[in-house]
Design a protein around this nucleic acid. Structure first.
Lengths: 231, 231
DNA sequence: CCTACCGATCGGTAGG
DNA sequence: CCTACCGATCGGTAGG
């Protein structure tokens, strides 16, 4: 058996060590979303996966290597939850809408138990220069970039008014989604997602063209006459 | 001298211990905005203020007490930076605008070196039930409430269309401001604030009435034809 | 993958 | 406000 054959086999059947590594990283990403990337210690991760600290060091030679691998694993999870369904949608306005919906659903389903891995990591590391921050920044910037690309795509297909600035529109749509996700985690109140959906629909409506496919209906959030609790 | 006189004097002239305590808490709030509320350790705070750990325990009997005092001190800072200028503005649309501007300015000036104390603390603690989370939640919910109140105030004065839902509008305006603040910390790029200002102005424009005072002019963010970096 | 360590630091206490 | 401690846990290493 030559080297190429070996590599091919390895790609087909991941080794047991590789499977263990992936299982560890799944737990690590969940744990880090709650405890933070620095709060993710070798000790508590070892306890969470049921092995010794020494055992973990067989997979990751340092805490930094573990953190970087965890960031990478979290990125794959986000792509599976948001990227895949978005790319599966028909291009244009529907794909833009699917991106928003996947992002909202990803937040509402708490794919990471402590809230979006990258939102948390960004808040944690934004004032701590280093490799971790750099890697987080790249991943954290992606959704906004994707959003801008989807806007442009919809405009190119004539399904969205070309007069809208893609970056500005992407900024506004992402703002609604992320703010809803933050408020949801703090208040445990999913009504913030309804607000975000409504805001997105209202923002897109004046930009629709005669080529635009119909958007799903969005309910108007219930209006209370008085803003609650004024201390 | 009876007890009342003593109390009065104490209120007028804060004791040296109290002054030290306030100085410690200022450093603690700054440090916590970078390191997080859990990363704020007795040891590194002691080093930062130039005293021993034992010395700190003379002011705060436990880490939790220190954290709670720090949250309170940070709340006062935020009120000084956002609440005071907002209340000083004339009621109505101008006050709503001032609230937005103070919030943006507070973020852009990095009043806390690691970014908004409460935004960071909320991200850190949103999955960790307890006293800390509860206190953070109250403080974190305030800006959105204030925003809703200012919208209502402007509507009551006829300076903003009454058909707008105050809570929905407050949600959208706060979304823009907070997303800009987050992006600013990650990218070190203040252009996100220009986007937020523009988004706010555009959102308010169709709601203006003949009683509305003029809003300050807001520049349209520069539009790039292609969304940068598409890997 | 394990046990058995290492020096450093954690929150906290004692005694002054 | 200090020094001098305490047990627990940190990241990491040695040796198997």
């Amino acid at each position: 058996m030559n080297e190429t054959t070996l590599t091919t086999l390895r790609n087909r059947l991941p080794s047991k060590g590789e499977l263990t590594r992936q299982a560890i990283l799944q737990v690590a990403a969940d744990l880090a979303s709650i405890e933070g990337l620095e709060g993710l210690t070798i000790g508590n991760l070892a306890k969470a996966v049921g092995m010794s600290k020494g055992g973990l060091y067989a997979h990751f030679r340092s805490k930094l290597e573990l953190q970087l691998a965890t960031i990478e694993a979290a990125g794959k999870i986000v792509d599976r939850e948001i990227g895949v369904p978005t790319r599966a949608a028909p291009p244009g306005l529907r794909r833009l809408w699917t991106l928003c919906e996947s992002y909202l659903s990803y937040s509402e389903r708490k794919v990471f138990p402590g809230g979006c891995f990258f939102a948390n990591a960004a808040a944690e590391l934004d004032a701590k220069p280093g490799v971790l921050r750099d890697n987080i920044r790249v991943a954290h910037g992606k959704p906004l970039m994707r959003m801008g690309e989807r806007v442009q795509e919809a405009q190119a297909l004539g399904e969205l008014d070309a007069k809208a600035d893609p970056r500005q529109l992407a900024f506004e749509l992402a703002s609604f989604i992320r703010e809803a996700a933050r408020l949801f985690l703090m208040d445990d109140d999913p009504s913030h997602f309804a607000r975000a959906r409504y805001a997105i629909a209202q923002r897109l409506r004046p930009l629709l063209t005669d080529k635009s496919p119909a958007l799903p209906e969005v309910q108007t959030p219930k209006r209370r006459e008085r803003v609650a609790g004024t201390p």
